[in-house]
């Protein structure tokens, strides 16, 4: 178990340090890179907990897709550092209040988790279930049976968000000539060219 302890402290330290670097880095692109490191170490912590499926999903979804888009946007924005720093003193009290509330909430959640809170009464399916059931199987069994309505509702929320984004950005520009692949593929010599018999000295006369 020594290896696991070493791995835990290493990953936890990296997560915390990277999280600190996210807010303290001067360059926004560096901030995003630190954020990615912190996501990645959090995935490592999930692996240590035995939740390898969640760890992989965290890497695939957050690191592989979401953070790429973050990076994409942040790189293209020309962030003005002087303007960013101007409001620092003004927003500090508000920021401190938000941070304080967050810390209080997280302390409450962690103490509840430590004492198993409401879950202490009923045994979780993972604890009582068979050992040979893999992560993905265990999640699937719960997600698609007991929580299938919530699962579908989450899907609907995402669908609405997606349609909303499309509606916001969709615009029809008149007069744009679009490429129609099917027309190009179906073009034959018969439809694509004609043979004219031109007399010398006279043009086509169109």
């Amino acid at each position: 178990m020594a290896l696991q302890a070493i791995a835990f402290y290493l990953l936890a330290a990296v997560t915390v340090l990277a999280g600190f670097a996210v807010v303290s880095a001067r360059n926004p692109v560096h901030s995003v890179l630190w954020l990615i490191l912190s996501f990645f170490s959090a995935a490592g912590l999930f692996v240590l907990l035995g939740a390898e499926f969640l760890a992989m999903l965290l890497v695939v979804v957050y690191v592989g897709a979401v953070a790429v888009l973050f990076l994409f946007v942040v790189m293209m924005l020309d962030v003005d550092f002087a303007a960013l720093r101007q409001g620092f003193a003004r927003y500090l009290p508000l920021g401190l209040v938000v941070a304080g509330i967050l810390v209080a909430e997280m302390v409450m959640v962690s103490t509840t988790v430590a004492t198993r809170g409401a879950a202490a009464a009923n045994d979780t399916p993972n604890a009582s279930g068979a050992v040979d059931v893999t992560n993905a199987e265990a999640i699937g069994r719960v997600l698609y049976t007991d929580y299938v309505y919530f699962f579908q509702a989450a899907g609907l929320v995402l669908l609405v968000a997606m349609i909303g984004a499309i509606v916001l950005t969709l615009r029809h520009k008149p007069g744009v000539r679009r490429q129609v692949m099917m027309d190009q593929v179906l073009r034959t010599p018969k439809t694509g060219m004609r043979i004219l018999d031109l007399k010398p000295g006279k043009g086509i006369g169109e």
């Binding site: 499926f53 992989m56 999903l57 890497v59 992560n135």
Partner: peptide
Amino acid sequence: NVGILYLFA
């Protein structure tokens, strides 16, 4: 067990 997801990630 999640080898293919690991590769994908």
